[in-house]
């Protein structure tokens, strides 16, 4: 061990410090006054923390090895990097895909039309989108409920009034709400993309019941959602060729935004945090050197009492 360390660090790490400065460091430490019980407690806490961390890591690893489903490969998302924002043109196209395809069965009850303003749509466009839906409102002055066109403050309409209706219409399977689906599924947007593009015929030996389809990325393989994305299933308003993978990529990017609306702010804040913490680190280092300079350069001289 010592030989390996020495190879990496040369002599610097292993060089014994002068006895005098070791003594000084010991004087400044507060651990010297701890009772032996305290030291044992601290040691045990450290060991437990490390052990639990190692256990969680090991469990996480073993979970990935179990189960029969295929793990979604990591795609080169344009927002994957530490500082990379979402591609808002893609988010806008993804909204088109959601509106024209997904929203037939999936609700998105935590996203309102006002959330689109300044992200994918201008205020006028978002108002126009909202006005396309009808919302039940009331009671009015006479106590009656009425319907009105949607406003910016309205949330996306749900295709079914409740979960039971959704199950009854879909062979007993419940189409999950898509608001936070990217955060709610292992693999995130990679999983969404792989699932939407991964449909194919069931291999021999896999038995599917009525209304089930085979998708290797879905846990268990048998999914109740049919393949919905095909080439040119919708048309994009900006003229992008609507291939299946393009549709899947755009809707996955849109769902990433609905799951993490703070995504861009967060990454912008990271730059700011690095700047401020970098500045503070430099200052702290300087102050440490400054305060220790007298401690490190002092000399203790023993002067015997003269008799």
């Amino acid at each position: 061990m010592a030989a390996t360390l020495r190879r990496f660090h040369g002599l610097r790490l292993l060089k014994s410090a002068p006895a005098l400065s070791l003594q000084q460091a010991k004087n400044l430490s507060s651990a010297g006054s701890w009772a032996s019980g305290n030291k044992k407690l601290i040691g045990a806490l450290g060991a437990i923390t490390g052990g639990v961390g190692a256990l969680i890591y090991a469990l996480e690893q073993s979970v990935q090895a179990s189960g029969g489903e295929v793990h979604s490969p990591a795609q080169p998302w344009s927002h994957r990097g530490l500082f990379d924002a979402l591609d808002h043109q893609s988010v806008r196209r993804g909204y088109e895909v959601y509106k024209q395809v997904c929203s037939a069965c999936h609700s998105m009850q935590y996203i309102a039309y006002r959330n689109l303003v300044g992200v994918t749509h201008t205020e006028a466009e978002a108002k126009a989108e909202a006005e396309q839906i009808t919302v039940k409102d009331g009671p009015d002055d006479t106590g009656n409920y009425y319907t009105r066109p949607g406003k910016l403050s309205d949330y996306f309409p749900s295709p079914y009034p409740n979960e039971e209706a959704a199950r009854a219409a879909n062979n007993g399977a419940y189409p999950p709400d898509l608001s936070y689906i990217v955060s709610a599924r292992k693999g995130g947007e990679d999983y969404i993309f792989s699932l939407l593009t991964g449909y194919h015929d069931a291999p021999a030996g896999v038995v599917l019941r009525e209304g089930q389809y085979f998708n290797p990325y879905f846990p268990g393989g048998a999914i109740s959602m049919a393949q919905v994305l095909y080439n040119e299933v919708i048309e994009y308003e900006d003229g992008t060729p609507p291939t299946q993978s393009q549709l899947a990529k755009d809707v996955a990017t849109f769902l990433k935004w609905t799951s993490e609306p703070e995504h861009d702010d967060r990454k912008q804040l990271l730059i700011k945090v690095i700047g401020i913490l970098g500045f503070l680190t430099v200052i702290s280092y300087y102050i440490k050197r400054h305060k220790w300079s007298s401690l490190k350069s002092r000399k203790i001289v023993f002067v015997p009492k003269e008799k």
Binding site: S78, F83, D84, A85, L86, D87, H88, Q89, R92, G118, V119, T120, D264, K267, Q268, I271, K272, G275
Partner: peptide
Amino acid sequence: SVAIFEGINKGKLWKDI
């Protein structure tokens, strides 16, 4: 920091489109 962020992500942000 805003200038750096917008420089890195030129063409992808809402203000660009």
